[in-house]
């Protein structure tokens, strides 16, 4: 019978085989943990932007657009970022699974934990305003994402449901304004009983959103007038018009 132990030892010596250095394994483990951390970080950015978009949703207009709150939630949910969050959670699962002890945990638990970590990270990032800036960068530079933003804004183009958005083109009197909506259609808006939110006062070129009632072709009675997505979004309507994205 062959002495396998001796033969193996001889082969190790003859072929000058050496143990792979410890730092190689240390490096490999570190890379895995770094990749895991990066996946969580990018997942946090995705969830941070999703949180930002959800905080910007005007929940009080839900009944104008959907029959139920769930229906409205499905309409405004930031799916794009949710897909990113899930994608990065799957990456983090793959990297974690390959760590030394990663195999001991069930797939569902790892994915769930990754999502939770990303949501917590996203909430923390949301406080730093980073997601808001990144969302703006995406909206301004990524054509596909810009299209998604357009879809969100289009929700306000539902005059039959009592929602309208556009730019004041002329102020006829204190109670009547002329408005060009996102599609370029002219409207006469009665604002006599309207509440102006966000310290707004009527002025030409002001971009606004209106809640009210359509009274016929080109006639709208406003109950409430809101600024168009706050100060930072000023000029977006014009840019969109220039790009022809609302037509």
């Amino acid at each position: 019978m062959t002495d396998i132990s001796k033969n193996t030892l001889d082969k190790i010596k003859k072929e000058n085989v050496h143990p792979i250095p410890r730092h190689y394994f240390l490096f490999k483990r570190s890379v895995l943990w770094i990749l895991f951390g990066l996946s969580i970080f990018f997942g946090s950015i995705a969830s941070g932007i999703a949180i930002f978009l959800l905080t910007r949703v005007e929940w009080d207009v839900s009944h104008y657009l959907a029959r139920s709150f769930i229906g409205f939630l499905l309409l405004v949910f930031p799916y794009f970022w949710l897909i990113f969050l899930l994608g990065f959670s799957i990456f983090s699962y793959i990297f974690f699974r390959h760590t030394e002890q990663g195999y001991r945990y069930k797939t569902a638990w790892i994915v769930l934990l990754s999502i939770l970590l990303s949501i917590v990270g996203g909430a923390l990032l949301h406080a730093t305003k980073l997601p808001e800036s990144l969302e703006r960068v995406c909206e301004e530079n990524v054509p596909f994402y810009h299209g998604l933003g357009k879809h969100r804004h289009k929700m306000w183009m539902s005059p039959h449901q009592g929602l309208l958005a556009g730019e004041i083109t002329h102020i006829r009197s204190g109670a009547i304004i002329e408005l060009e909506d996102l599609n370029g259609m002219k409207w006469t808006v009665h604002t006599g009983d309207a509440i102006w939110r966000g310290n707004l006062s009527p002025s030409e070129n002001l971009q606004i959103k209106l809640i009210g009632q359509m009274k016929g072709d080109g006639q709208f009675v406003a109950y409430e007038i809101r600024p168009w997505e706050g100060q930072r979004h000023r000029g977006r309507i014009q840019r969109n018009r220039r790009m022809g994205t609302y037509r």
Partner: peptide
Amino acid sequence: EDILQEIFLKVYRNLNS
């Protein structure tokens, strides 16, 4: 036995892991 030898060579190479 060939497989066994290959296994122990791998064990030896990876001792540090």
